[in-house]
Amino acid sequence: MTLISVDDELIAARASGTLSAPMRLLVDTHAVLKTDVAAAALMSDALSGAFLEGMPAEPMAENALDIALAAIDALESGAGEAAGTQAISRKAAAAAADSVLSELLQLPEPVRDRALEAGAQWRFAAPGVRRIELMREGDATAELLRIEPGHGSPSHTHNGKEFTLVLAGAFADGIGRYEKGDLCAVGEETTHRPIAEQGEICFALAVTDGSLKFTGALGAVQRLLGH
């Protein structure tokens, strides 16, 4: 199934703060790639803000000022400077980076920043496929995938939902074709085999709330190992 944009339910959940961090990253990145998603997210944020303004104010804790001043002292004592230095160091590293960092710098800002914060270290996922785990919260995981043309994942289904947002290049999974800005959403009932198209390397943001279940011989091995 190909989704041109995330649905209203996800956008509303993002505005209300009920989305997991990996799903927020998915929606924020999609908003960078699709103007309609950005517009919907902006509208949802505005509506949520108006709703909050209409709610009665909550009383502040008696020590609220002390907490705020302590936070300011922590920033002035070095935490804030460290954050600024980290940003400067990241830019300096990127300027002198090799092809790995050069590729990451071409990706949408939310994913790019998370990948750099995660150390920009690609790990083996499958032949022709590398991954960087960006974040994890509960059962939800966000990963950046780098898929060489003609390569991809073995045939599989899922223990939950899987959202794959194409950041560059394109892939097909036997059900549909997905290019930059397209969001592929599948559930437990779907079996597919994503393979990157020939030509450009495919980069994708994958967010799952459950593990993959492989089919065929690989599935038999997975079941034998108890996964």
Rank of each mutant, 00 (worst) to 15 (best):
C184A: 13
I132G: 02
A206E: 09
A115Y: 08
C202Y: 02
A206T: 13
C184K: 11
D173K: 02
L205T: 03
R123Y: 12
R193P: 00
I132A: 02
P149R: 02
E137M: 07
H158V: 05
P108N: 07
E137T: 06
D173I: 04
R193Y: 08
G119K: 06
I201R: 06
L144C: 04
Q198A: 13
L205Y: 00
G138D: 10
L165Q: 02
P108A: 10
V129A: 03
Q106T: 14
L183M: 07
A196P: 00
F124G: 03
P127D: 14
G181F: 07
R131V: 15
P154N: 04
G181V: 09
L105F: 13
I175E: 12
V166P: 01
D182I: 07
P127Q: 12
S153T: 12
I132E: 00
E148W: 11
A118E: 06
P149S: 06
T190I: 15
G174Q: 05
R112G: 04
A125Y: 13
R146W: 10
G119E: 08
T190P: 02
R146M: 12
V186Q: 04
L134V: 09
A126V: 08
V207Q: 01
A168S: 15
G169S: 06
L183P: 01
R193A: 13
D173R: 04
T141F: 12
T157S: 15
D209S: 07
H151M: 09
R112N: 09
R177K: 13
A120C: 10
C184H: 11
A142P: 05
V207E: 00
G181I: 08
